[in-house]
Structure formats: C-alpha cells, structure tokens
Design a protein around this nucleic acid. Structure first.
Lengths: 110, 110
DNA sequence: TTAACACTTAGCATAATCACTAAGTATCTA
DNA sequence: TAGATACTTAGTGATTATGCTAAGTGTTAA
C-alpha cells in the first residue's frame, strides 16, 4: 500500500503555517499577499510553503496581472479523510468483536 | 492556532512505513518483530519509526520479558479527523452560500 | 550453561526541510 | 515614464529525518 499522494498530503499538512493557509482558503480564494499577511516570515519563505501546498495538490493558483490568486482543492483532503475513516472502521470492528467475545464469556458464566 | 500535536501526528503519518504500522495495529496488538517483518529495512531503522509513532502518541507499548507488544491509540487519529471535518464544514458552508447566491441571481433574471 | 532471540544503543552518512538575504521581473498607478 | 507593488529567483546556512552497520543487553529454550 505505497500511496505517495498520502505521503505528500500528510507531510504538507504537518506544518502549522500551511494548515493555516488551508484554513484560510476553505473560506474562499485569496492572493499571495493576503495569505502571507498573518505570517511573520520573509515572503520567499512563505512562497515556498505555498509551493509545497500546490505540489501536494491542495492549492491551485492563477496569476492575473501581478496578482496570484490561490484557491483550495478539496480532493486531497478527502483522500486523507478516507484513509482515516478506513482505520476507524477497522478499529471499531475489532472493538465490536471484542465486545461480542466478552458477552459470550459472560454467558458462559451463567 | 498553533497546534503542535497536529504537527506531530501529520508528520508521523507522512511516512508509508509508519502508516502501514497503524494499518496493522488497528486490527490488534503486535510485537516489534511481527510489525517489522513486512518491511525491508534494518531493525534499528524500523525501531526508529516505532519511536516516532510513540512520540506522536499514536502507539503505546509494553515490554514483557524480551518481547515488546505495541497497540494503537485512537485519540490522535480522532484529532486529525476533527481538523479535517472542520475544514470540510467551512468549505461546504461556502459552497452553500455560493449556491444560494447563484439561485438568487437566477431569480433576478426572471 | 550455552546459544538463540528480541530488541536496544551508539555512531555515521546522506538528503530533505525551513529559514534567511539580495537581487530581479513584470504590472499597475500617478 | 518613474516609482510602487506583487511576486519570483538564486544562493546560503542550520536543523532534522532516514537510512545503514556494529556491537551490546536482557530473556528464554535446549
């Protein structure tokens, strides 16, 4: 199960600055300057984070004149959610089996 | 919104080997040797991955005799799921507003 | 009581990540 | 058209991550 996309998306989301950009962009598109404003770092450094987000497919952008406008791409987030949902399902199934086992053991003691 | 726990959990899950360990452990506990078997790497290297998982709180382990048994801890996964669910909610609310806007524009054209 | 087993520690090499500054390009405004 | 604006590129340094081998510790089985 070598899913390189998941590697990329998880590692991209492991940085607080990049998660903050996602949190901002789910609310609607924004320019690079707008996105960078709340972050106390040099612009090239911030642009690097944006590039990481784009490489992971989490953000798309278009440049019009001198302004680059960024928007979120939901699909990769859904992929992560899917993986988590799968783990949760397997985990809960196991707990159910353990419950069933405990119940049957109780029954045996009657 | 500086959530260091999320940093840690996301970066931990950004590695395919570590995700594979999680996928194995949601099905039930296992020893280090068992966990390492499918992975083509030196044992100390694999142990390092396990340590990363433990540091992130995703895995707990107990040693009995010479065998260390590992099990999953679900809470950090839930935290990630929570963050994703939040983004999804904001995103869908925005889409709903856009839909409503489109509808009202259509109405205006009648 | 030896030998195998299951880790565990230590140390090292390579590569990736994250920050910076300095300087450059393209676009818009006055 | 001069200057401000909005990125963009290039280059540097520090830190962290991921892999390895070699050697060590404690436990169990023969």
């Amino acid at each position: 199960m070598a899913n390189e996309r998941l590697d990329l998306v998880f590692s991209t989301l492991s940085d607080a600055t990049r998660r903050a950009v996602v949190e901002r962009l789910v609310g609607g598109p924004a320019s690079v300057t707008e996105l960078a404003a709340p972050h106390d770092m040099a612009l090239p450094t911030f642009m690097r984070h944006l590039k990481v987000l784009e490489t992971a497919g989490l953000v798309r952008s278009v440049k019009k004149g001198r302004v680059r406008t960024c928007h979120i791409e939901a699909a990769p987030l859904m992929e992560v959610q899917g993986w988590l949902a799968w783990q949760r399902q397997v985990w809960e199934q196991r707990l159910d089996r353990l419950d069933a086992l405990a119940l049957s053991l109780e029954k045996d003691m009657e």
